[in-house]
Simulated assay, not measured.
Amino acid sequence: MDAHIKKVYVPMTETGFYILLSLRKEMHGYSIVQQVEEMTGGEVRLSPGTMYGSLSKMEKDGLIAFVREEEKRKIYQITELGIEVLEREMKRIERLYRNMKEAVS
């Protein structure tokens, strides 16, 4: 993982985290918005501008890839680099959670 990717994506924003988490299977933007809202019980709602700006940047940086177009919708999926970034972030969140639990016990 190069320095640019680390600087931009570690730690990740909630938006970036949920996009990569969703794109472990192929999806288009609107289905990502719906999935994130469902996963978070409506606490995280991605606006179209945020969503499509993030998709564009992540595709440019190689974290996700365009797979195909269906009914004028672009379908994306996470790449190997995206998986590496997501796994690093999940470990960071697990560490934060573990440290929080230890501190309040």
Rank of each mutant, 00 (worst) to 15 (best):
V85K: 09
Q35T: 04
V10P: 01
M58H: 02
L23C: 06
S47G: 12
K60A: 13
G53E: 01
S56M: 05
G62C: 09
T40F: 11
S56G: 00
M58V: 06
Q35A: 10
E37S: 05
E14M: 12
S56W: 02
L63F: 06
S31C: 07
S22E: 05
T40H: 07
E37Y: 04
E59C: 01
E43S: 11
K74N: 07
S31Y: 04
K57N: 10
L21S: 13
K25P: 00
M39Y: 08
R24K: 13
L20F: 00
V85I: 15
Q34M: 11
V67F: 02
T13P: 01
K72E: 15
E69N: 14
E59G: 02
E59P: 04
P48K: 12
V10N: 08
K74S: 07
G53S: 15
F66L: 12
G41Y: 04
L46F: 04
V44N: 02
E43K: 15
T15Q: 08
G42S: 00
Q35G: 00
G42F: 00
E38F: 11
Y18K: 01
K74H: 06
L86V: 06
M12L: 06
K57A: 08
T50S: 12
L55G: 04
K57G: 02
I19S: 10
A65L: 11
Y18W: 15
V67K: 15
M58L: 09
M39F: 12
T79R: 11
H28G: 03
M39G: 00
V33H: 05
V33L: 10
D61H: 15
E43I: 04
Q34C: 03
Y76G: 06
G82V: 08
A65F: 07
M12H: 02
L86P: 08
M12Y: 03
E26D: 10
V33P: 00
S54N: 12
I64H: 06
E38W: 01
V44E: 02
L86W: 03
I78F: 09
T15Y: 04
G62E: 04
T79S: 10
G41L: 08
Q77D: 07
A65C: 10
E70W: 06
R45A: 07
Y76E: 05
E71F: 08
T50H: 01
G49F: 14
G82M: 08
E80Y: 05
T79Q: 11
H28A: 02
V85D: 13
M51G: 10
E84K: 15
T15D: 11
L20D: 05
K57H: 05
M39D: 13
I75T: 10
T15K: 07
L20M: 09
G41T: 12
G42K: 01
E70H: 12
E84Y: 11
Y30C: 00
T40K: 03
L81S: 13
K57Q: 14
